[in-house]
Design a protein around this nucleic acid. Structure first.
Lengths: 144, 144
DNA sequence: GTAGAATAGTAAGCATACATATTATACGTA
DNA sequence: TACGTATAATATGTATGCTTACTATTCTAC
């Protein structure tokens, strides 16, 4: 099978292209797409431990730790030691970050709209359902 | 919008999960998923310059250069200076790599089969067509 | 023929992404 | 109460992935 026909190549390439476009748009806010994902998760969940952030974004704790560290350096999140579990830090957004997220939200939608230009509504529905199914399939096997 | 509902998150996460699974399977061959993609491309095209490899996999020349270097160190590809264009190298597979690719091909199919377990044939068709359309949409805007 | 633009490959810097290992802390059980 | 197992965070090493910049070479237009 041609590499260009493989599911891995198609998913990886489309993901990289969206990330590239998002990174370019996010540059003016001095954050990256991965950092944006962490901010978005905390916007919904308010307070999480680093382990929960990693789990929430299906990333590894070491990587998420360093993404969180950079966000902390940029004063976009705060992390404080959990008094109930002294191993853990509680992570939340700063007011600056909350303000910023409002501005970025629309821009992110525009990137996805561009990616999905000309799509049938029904195809969009199948696409999203399919990708979620792939994630579920690969999570399932992991837990065996 | 929830981060988990965003197209970027869905594509990125599914791509990373497939890559993770592929990397685990490829470990016994001592190569990575990105290296495998280069080998697969050269298996089809026989001889390419590094710039063509980068273009063929929609990557940047610096990154592809270092992936190719590592494959050369592993004796899986050869690169020779192009006598017609002394800027360029011609890259091709070694016999060892060609033998290896046969073994890996089936394993790669198994990973995709696992990802697509339980899918309707029609949904698979919509999924592939949709992702190709996303790639085309994002390529188009790049070339404006 | 020459100058300017473009290309091929690499260097350097920064940001993930992943795996493995270590330290400190928490939890459950005998 | 002590011990073994599990967890949270970080350290380290390796491999991308991307951007910018540089050098050598090629190509095109005048």
């Amino acid at each position: 099978m041609e590499i260009h026909d493989s599911l891995g190549y198609l998913l990886n390439t489309s993901a990289r292209m969206i990330k590239r476009k998002m990174d370019a748009c996010l540059e003016k806010y001095t954050i990256t797409t991965s950092q944006w994902a962490v901010l978005k998760l905390l916007d919904t969940k308010e307070v999480l431990t680093q382990a929960q952030v990693a789990e929430g974004l299906r990333g590894d704790r070491a990587t998420m730790g360093s993404v969180i560290q950079r966000l902390q350096e940029k004063k976009l999140i705060d992390k404080v030691l959990d008094t109930k579990d002294r191993r853990a830090y509680l992570v939340c957004l700063t007011p600056v970050a909350k303000e910023m997220i409002k501005d970025i939200e629309k821009m992110a939608q525009d990137v996805f709209a561009e990616a999905l230009k000309g799509f049938e509504e029904s195809d969009i529905e199948v696409l999203y359902r399919s990708i979620r199914r792939i994630i579920a399939n690969l999570s399932e096997e992991e837990n065996v």
